[in-house]
């Protein structure tokens, strides 16, 4: 046993905190908030002047700043205005009412998740075909890449109209748009993953006279799981973008996209910003959820502790 060389276990707790990114992150957030407050003064200056003229208040420094940070429909709302609106629309309202951001997040999120699931299935299916048949690699891949060069904003209304004609409205058309966006990274990642086994690992299977099915399930599939999760994290984020974009052209009443649209109709910038934050939060939660599944799956498959 002279060649025993177990790697040392990761030291927990303290060291991770010291090496962690809490401190730099806090610094960046603080800087953004400061810049944001300054920007709110600068961008709202015109509106503030009007307001002060109307009310006849003296344009001192403090009233100027105070007004700039508390306008009803500012060009750029101050962070605390967004925070208050966000808090009100998330925590103080009935989650089933259309005035609740939670409700809108649920509408958009469910479309995104359905689209993500369909897109993942489609992406994996395409990658299987591409890896299995050389002709599909040549004939299909250029079209798949071309499909992603079309701006989604251009194609989304068409999808909505066509599906609407077929009697499909609500969640499904949005899910289709999400799927259209998110199958792509899955296909590309899985093609790479399924082809990742090296010649030695494939030769080993050949020496066992393994069937193609066995080579797939015991080698290609497990070898591609890491690639799959990397793709899924991209896919779930853009599936949310797809679902929001899908809400824009229909004048939908529900969903974060509808919230953004109505906000811009009525100049409700505070509402737009809080919807944007909700979208970002939703995206982060969905990516983190995929990340958690990834971590537990890869751990079970023997990946080194991060």
């Amino acid at each position: 046993m002279s060649d025993v060389a177990l790697r040392p276990a990761l030291p927990a707790g303290l060291q991770r905190l010291r090496e962690g990114n809490t401190l730099p992150l806090a610094a960046v957030v603080t800087a953004i908030i400061v810049l944001w407050y300054l920007g709110a003064i600068w961008l709202n200056a015109g509106l503030v002047e009007q307001r002060l003229e109307q009310t006849g208040q003296p344009p001192t420094m403090s009233t100027f700043i105070e007004t700039a940070w508390s306008l009803d429909r500012p060009v750029l709302p101050a962070p605390h205005q967004v925070a208050v609106e966000f808090y009100d629309s998330v925590f103080t309202r009935d989650v089933s009412s259309p005035r609740s951001l939670v409700y809108h997040a649920y509408v958009t999120g469910s479309a995104a998740i359905v689209g993500f699931l369909f897109g993942t299935a489609l992406g994996i299916l395409l990658s299987l075909g591409i890896v299995r048949w050389r002709t599909l690699d040549r004939s299909l891949l250029p079209w798949i890449i071309a499909s992603q060069t079309i701006p989604i904003l251009a194609i989304a209304p068409m999808i909505i109209v066509v599906l609407g004609n077929m009697g499909l409205t609500g969640l499904l058309p949005k899910a289709v748009i999400s799927m259209y966006l998110c199958f792509f990274p899955v296909t590309i990642g899985m093609v790479k993953g399924l082809r990742s086994p090296d010649p030695l690992q494939l030769d080993l299977m050949r020496t066992y006279s393994a069937t193609p099915r066995q080579v797939f399930w015991k080698l290609r599939w497990p070898a591609s799981v890491g690639f799959l999760f990397a793709s899924l994290k991209v896919a779930i984020a853009i599936s949310l973008v797809g679902a929001i974009v899908g809400e824009l052209p229909t004048g939908a009443q529900e969903g974060l996209g509808a919230r953004l649209l109505s906000g811009s109709y009525y100049g409700q910038t505070v509402q737009i910003w809080s919807a944007l934050f909700m979208a970002a939060l939703l995206g982060a939660v969905m990516v983190a959820a995929v990340g958690a599944v990834e971590l537990s799956t890869l751990r079970r498959m023997g990946a080194a502790a991060p």
Binding site: Q201, T207, Y208, Q214, G302
Partner: peptide
């Protein structure tokens, strides 16, 4: 096809997602 030989390569060619025990059982599973 008769699985008459075992082949040992220059590199171990173990499958990273299988434990040592399950790597050993791979040919037997197949």
């Amino acid at each position: 096809l008769a699985r008459a030989y075992g082949y040992v390569f220059q590199a171990p060619a173990l499958y990273a997602w299988r434990t040592v025990r399950r790597n050993l059982m791979l040919p037997l599973e197949i």
